[in-house]
Design a protein around this nucleic acid. Structure first.
Lengths: 236, 236
DNA sequence: CTATTTCGCTACGAGTCGTAGCGTAACTTT
DNA sequence: AAAGTTACGCTACGACTCGTAGCGAAATAG
């Protein structure tokens, strides 16, 4: 008894906001911070993120409330605010987990097959109602929030870009694409090329799914791949 | 005096919602409905949409409130709810006006120049903070709202697609692209082709600007156009 | 055991939402 | 000119969400 209220005697408070969740796939859980007190419940993290995805599906971004998420997850609302500083940050983490699990690039033997595969894989991810609703909402919020942009970059963009880099290297090894030029310029050009390809592929799939509102079926993936390969394999 | 409250003696009310603004560029204004009472103020429409854009720039989608918009526009909050059924619908109309004014396709003499021009024009539109913030937010909301999807389609998608169709026809007239095949199949294939090109161009520009968060400069537009043309001009 | 941190809970003021009701203004029809 | 109809500005309202504060209890490290 007579417990000394810990929070009270803290310094002015690090900020009004909360833990950055360090952009890892592993949220903000467990000990290992070298900290001394009671560790955050990893189970609570899991439940919260899952509840967030479920609430997104049912309510959509606009009507999703943190109070509702807390109730679904079986935790107190205050716990949410202790870990994330708002709706956007929470949803990014909730959706980022899906990008971890579901994006791979098995070697399908040819550049064409690899490209077509990644298109369909990404399209399948976007078909999920959680991602469909959340991704663009978060992107929209990020236009006014630098920290959120950083989060999206590491949780979504960088992960996808890695697939492009890998596929490109494989194609070069197969001789389907010319190797990168040597030197600093060559590396810069290669990076630019990767960025371009990434925006074209991801952009087209996202746009067709969310803006045009039509499905990415096998036929479309094939046509798009054909168009793309002609551009990729022609002279620089 | 003793005025008979008009609203009271109306039938059960058309709905809880509001005027569809009929998807025209001209909002919901003026008489000419053949209606009989006081017409809606077109000036109010103009002021509201402009106030909406201004509020978007300052506050962003998340913190934009209809009460604030009403105050800026110098109208009563209730007037907003009489014309639009919510934030999303209002913002779509507010942003759609920009797409009207700013999207044209002057004949630049070659397919390459036309494509590069439309890319830069669209990119310039997305640079504006109103569109940057609003477009994806609205798209996100639309994933759960069929009516909103229709609005976006007519206010944004169809207008842009028209540019693709026009550019394509010009290129065919110049002999830069093969003419469409005859018959029903030919027309269907042409429509598919237009859809594909549209999603690739608009998608890449949107994705680079909003997701990757990098500028569409002249160099990028050139590289992208090169990639695209190689794909377009190669055999089907 | 002591120090420290997190947890669930309750409570709260501030702010927004969307609607209702009223009296007035503007326009059409007779 | 009068009557009928619709839009407008204003005020007020209950319902809800937000984000924070404070408390006592639980969980861990040393």
């Amino acid at each position: 008894m007579i417990p000394i209220t810990a929070a009270r005697r803290l310094p002015p408070r690090p900020a009004a906001g909360m833990v950055p969740a360090m952009s890892r796939s592993e949220p903000s859980s467990s000990a290992q911070h070298g900290r001394t007190g009671r560790p955050r419940s990893a189970e609570a993290d899991r439940a919260i993120l899952e509840a967030t995805r479920a609430a997104l599906v049912e309510l959509g971004w606009g009507k999703l409330t943190l109070g509702d998420v807390a109730a679904r997850a079986g935790v107190a609302k205050t716990t949410l605010y202790r870990r994330w500083n708002g709706k956007s940050a929470l949803v990014v983490d909730a959706v980022a987990a899906l990008f971890d699990e579901r994006l791979e690039l098995p070697d399908r033997g040819s550049l064409r097959a690899d490209v077509e595969g990644v298109i369909q894989q990404f399209a399948a991810l976007l078909e999920r109602p959680e991602t469909k609703t959340a991704l663009m909402a978060v992107v929209s919020e990020a236009t006014r929030d630098e920290a959120l942009r950083g989060r999206i970059r590491s949780a979504v963009v960088d992960r996808q870009k890695r697939l492009v880099i890998m596929g490109r290297e494989r194609a070069q090894a197969r001789g389907e694409l010319p190797p990168d030029a040597d030197g600093e310029d060559g590396r810069a050009a290669a990076a630019h090329h990767v960025d371009l390809i990434y925006d074209v592929i991801a952009g087209a799939v996202v746009h067709r799914t969310l803006v045009s509102g039509e499905r990415v079926d096998a036929g479309w993936a094939r046509e798009f791949t054909t168009l793309l390969l002609a551009g990729l394999t022609s002279a620089p």
